[in-house]
């Protein structure tokens, strides 16, 4: 009986630690999510949709390039990339650009390049990031084509 109680306690402690660990990383992203939402809400009110179309010209290659560049220099939880990407779509930005943006957000890390180079070598970090950058652009174009089917 005692053993069963111990086992039950161990499971409960494990669960509590898992919840706390998750909360720790999660709670760190909450203020960032709020900040980004506050920023986006303001930008959406102040900048009319025509302003977005000036950055994303509707050219397949250029749009995916701009989207991938924005994603590459951005930092933070991928949840933010979905929120921003979703808002971009609503504002008329092309699917190619948004897809390239959300993929490069996670797979390309310009700001994290020194850390990556430190662990895996400069050459690896540079080649991997360049390949991932063009990969996200290419996937963006492919998604756009496949969505039409």
């Amino acid at each position: 009986m005692n053993f069963l109680n111990l086992e039950e306690d161990r499971k409960q402690i494990k669960l509590r630690i898992a919840i706390l660990k998750t909360w720790k990383s999660f709670s760190m992203s909450i203020p960032i999510i709020i900040t980004v939402l506050l920023f986006i809400s303001f930008v959406q009110v102040v900048l009319p949709k025509e302003e977005y179309s000036k950055i994303f010209v509707g050219n397949t290659f250029l749009d995916s390039f701009v989207g991938a560049t924005l994603g590459s220099v951005s930092l933070g939880n991928p949840i933010l990339s979905y929120i921003i990407g979703g808002e971009m779509l609503k504002d008329g930005v092309s699917l190619i650009a948004v897809a390239a943006f959300i993929i490069s957000w996670v797979s390309v890390g310009i700001t994290q390049l020194p850390i990556e180079a430190h662990f895996f070598g400069k050459k690896f970090a540079i080649v991997r990031n360049i390949a991932a950058f063009f990969g996200s652009m290419f996937i963006g174009i492919l998604i756009f084509l496949l969505m039409k089917i």
Partner: peptide, 11 residues
């Protein structure tokens, strides 16, 4: 929620 099922699966 943001991009739909088709987009999410293809991506």
């Amino acid at each position: 929620f943001y991009f739909g099922v088709k987009f999410s699966v293809i991506e």
